[in-house]
């Protein structure tokens, strides 16, 4: 086994910002985001793909960032939880819904839930109860706040739907 493997250069875009970095092959994407880019919003829970706290979007697809190597993200466009709110700090409608519906308790699992729900609502703006539960089932909340999170998803879907029809109305 190599004592240490040569670091390699990767280029990727995270939340719209281009980065270039040297990473050891064994560095997970989660550790690179947190340690390399100081984007500590992505939380590391179980480190073996079970809890979902470390979810990020890679080229629009939600993945467990503890189950991906940073070198595998070379050339990719990522979004982390830090990319949800607007630059002036205005929260994303999914985040607003979490606040209003008490979708977060201790908050540790929240970044993963937000990313998972973002991916769901991007591909399916009015998801069925079953589709929502399928997605939430992949995220662990040890405070067991699932009912509030479920309500937050419904509320977020409604908010996003209203925003879409407002922007589609001419003159609005």
């Amino acid at each position: 086994m190599p004592e240490v493997a040569a670091a390699r250069k990767i280029r990727l875009k995270v939340n719209g910002v281009a980065h270039e970095a040297l990473v050891e092959p064994r560095t997970t994407l989660a550790d690179f985001l947190r340690g390399g880019l100081a984007l500590t919003g992505t939380h590391v829970g179980c480190e073996h793909g079970v809890c979902g706290a470390c979810a990020v979007l890679v080229d629009g697809t939600a993945v467990r960032s503890c189950l991906m190597l940073a070198v595998q993200a070379d050339g990719a466009e990522l979004m982390t939880v830090e990319g949800l709110a607007e630059s002036d700090g205005k929260l994303h409608p999914i985040q607003e819904a979490f606040v209003e519906e008490h979708g977060l308790q201790c908050g540790f699992c929240t970044p993963g839930f937000l990313i998972a729900i973002y991916e769901l609502l991007e591909s399916d703006p009015s998801p069925s109860e079953e589709a929502i539960r399928d997605v939430l089932g992949g995220q662990m909340c040890r405070c067991t706040g699932y009912q509030s999170i479920l309500r937050a998803v419904h509320s977020a879907a409604a908010k996003l739907g209203a925003a879409r029809s407002a922007s589609a109305t001419p003159g609005a």
């Binding site: 086994m1 493997a5 092959p25 070198v71």
Partner: peptide
Amino acid sequence: MKPAPFEYVA
């Protein structure tokens, strides 16, 4: 935990 070092090719 974190992976032990390895060489990597793609």
